[in-house]
Nucleic acid binder design. Structure first.
Lengths: 264, 264
DNA sequence: GTAGTCAGGCTGTCAGACAGATTGAAGGAA
DNA sequence: TTCCTTCAATCTGTCTGACAGCCTGACTAC
């Protein structure tokens, strides 16, 4: 609560030699280039040039070490970094597989979340804040093709729902179409990551029982509003949908279905 | 656009053997317990029991390896994980330092962001969505002590500003007090992480030139509104503040101060 | 009190080794 | 032919030992 910037807190020098302190205040700790970082840069370069896609296998650690002329430990530490950041997945005895886009200029930040009793509700509130914004943007800025895509996704969701199959993926695709239609793809990224955190706490697809014709109707209204470019009505609808979800979350919380869950 | 869940995509089985697919849909890949994870669990336990705080130094790798009866490589890989997740900071020749709270039940998710021309603006838009919500919550739910804290932070900011010293830390502390006053600490976490991404793209404290009496007045109005519990006015003020910031961002973008920046 | 020097501790990196998992191909059975 | 078993090559996970370079604190000189 007190020291916001533990490292490099530095000056705030109050008194003598103020000018020197002031000058030092403009300095930032220069990151000592370690070897792992160089390895990661090289790998990112390799991935781009070789055109590796998500799911593709990377060369073995031994090969990478020999090619880059570094020890295998260094390669392993570099890959460990990417692994914990979700960029690659490692399979013992098999290899390392690309799990996210490493297009030049994409980077990764870690997000720390405390898991407490009401964390489900909290992630949901964060989601709501973002969903409202992204829905408004989508309604205002979507192109014609994007509106068509949204409608197609909704039609598909409706079909899947009525067929009695799993609606989860279709619902996901529908919402994702809305994220994509907003001019800011970052919203979708953050929402999906927050949702993934949500589902890491409570793994069930969740809502399986509650979704029904009512929810589907809300989705339909949302689809119409976004496609019509009616931002206010769209926001209203997404809030209603999120209200339903929140009701589910509260029900889960009250039944205490969430126990000694220890992620990671 | 199609496969939302690349790993474990599984069923969506359309047709025969639907029930079997249905059952499999409830399965999730069980993470093979590797040694690093056990090490991290042990470390988290140690940190909790020893009461280590942010900034404290962890035991040396050698000591940890001997105590846990594992090789130093294993310790190093575990710490590498935490390092890339921002939980610890490593200093060559010195040791590993705790950089984030590892309270039992906190976990971390990676966030992938693509860095493009307008990414500064995009992170700012995400921040706005979250700031608006957190400000509203803070205005509605803050306790008396929290309101007092907010006011104290503002007073401090004003003092620092008028003294001509660096206002960056004080401004940060002021906003953070508002995050803390909302009943949902997750907002603050996400905002700060998004901001950290922002500053990784554009490292300057930024706004150094633009902040002035006008911005300070806006902060004052925000402080008053939150302390009065006037949510609507508070939201209005935070939007005005963010408008100013956004103006700065657009100025930076237009001057092309952002060049071949390659984070990580 | 400031600056130089030095020893001990610690991290970064490498090489070599081995167990266990995985995979794809060879070979045998139906 | 097709399916199943077996097996060897490959790869990751982990450990050990080693050395260079950085950091820290203590001691010393001015």
């Amino acid at each position: 609560m007190e020291k916001q910037i533990p490292p490099t807190a530095g000056p705030t020098g109050s008194g003598r030699n103020a000018q020197a302190d002031d000058a030092a205040g403009h300095l930032r700790p220069l990151e000592s280039r370690t070897r792992d970082m160089d390895v990661l840069d090289a790998l990112a370069d390799m991935i781009a040039k070789a055109g590796l896609k998500v799911g593709d296998r990377l060369p073995s650690e031994l090969v990478l070490a020999q090619r880059l002329a570094v020890g295998r430990s260094t390669i392993r530490e570099a890959l460990k970094s990417w692994q914990s950041l979700g960029v690659v997945t490692k399979r013992t005895g098999s290899g390392s597989y690309l799990a996210a886009d490493v297009s030049p200029g994409s980077f990764h930040i870690p997000l720390t979340i405390k898991l407490e009793g009401e964390s489900l509700l909290r992630t949901h509130q964060v989601r709501r804040a973002l969903e409202v914004s992204v829905t408004r943007e989508a309604a205002c800025n979507a192109t014609k093709a994007q509106r068509a895509e949204i409608r197609a996704r909704y039609d598909h969701l409706m079909k899947v729902f009525h067929s009695g199959e799993h609606w989860y993926a279709a619902d996901h695709a529908f919402h994702r179409a809305i994220y994509d239609a907003s001019s800011n793809p970052l919203f979708g990224e953050v929402i999906q990551q927050v949702q993934s955190a949500f589902h890491r706490i409570y793994p069930e697809p969740f809502g399986t029982t509650a979704i029904g014709a009512a929810s589907l109707a809300l989705h339909g209204a949302l689809c119409d509003a976004v496609c019509d470019g009616d931002a206010e009505r769209a926001v209203e609808q997404i809030n209603l949908i999120l209200d339903e979800t929140e009701k589910d979350v509260r029900r889960i919380l009250s039944t205490g279905a969430l126990g000694a869950d220890r992620p990671k």
